[in-house]
Design a protein around this nucleic acid. Structure first.
Lengths: 112, 112
DNA sequence: GTAATTTATTCTACAAAGTAAAACTAATAA
DNA sequence: TTATTAGTTTTACTTTGTAGAATAAATTAC
């Protein structure tokens, strides 16, 4: 079992992107979600590096799609989050929530 | 001005710790908050490295306290967050919120 | 049937952030 | 004048973040 390290911020974003894409999460769509939702324009190579690492840690798993492409192009590699991945994501969120709790009150000078 | 990079997760935690400590944020107290609130036990050296980097990026500023210690020991270095630091923190939060939005609904199998 | 074209993944290399351990500093107390 | 105490800096290394180029495997157009 993966030595319970912490999730990096980008790793969290990627996990969340996979979750919201559901069954059709693969390189290009994940990258697009990141761009659409948080305007984060990351190179596709950078994204795959993170995907590989997340899989090595057991936080996601992947499966190659059938080679039934219509308009040319290589087969897609689909990703989904594992139970451990969900757990890691929840933990990261809980920590951040805990740190933010009460802080908002004293956080003057910046509109929320 | 600091080339608007993204905040790492630990950097966010440190900024939040400083915010909630208010006027008495310095090495030891920041470390203690991290331990109390999110059970993150980081070495003091690691913390200072991050503090230094945050200051270099203009997200916090520091000031040495008067040498009026009572029971021996060196003067404290107090930290406070800058306007830019608050902004960066807000942005990081907004991105994470945006990515989490709607995800909760499809997030079955893990108690929230 | 082979050379584009298209869609996608993998590799390589480096920068930035996370982290610990040891060294150092500057006070007070014995 | 040497401990002791409370605190900060330095050094060194691991992990994450990131881009760009290379590669792969399909389809389509001569």
């Amino acid at each position: 079992m993966g030595k319970s390290r912490f999730l990096g911020e980008f790793e969290q974003f990627v996990l969340l992107a996979i979750l919201r894409l559901g069954v059709q999460a693969y390189g290009t769509t994940i990258r697009q979600i990141l761009l659409d939702v948080i305007q984060r324009d990351v190179s596709i190579g950078a994204l795959y590096t993170t995907l590989t690492r997340l899989e090595d840690k057991g936080l996601i798993r992947s499966a190659m799609g059938e080679a039934t492409a219509e308009r040319g192009g290589r087969a897609k590699k689909y990703f989904e989050i594992t139970a451990e991945g969900k757990r890691a994501l929840q933990e990261a969120r809980q920590s951040l929530d805990a740190m933010w709790r009460d802080v908002k009150l004293s956080f003057v000078g910046v509109k929320q």
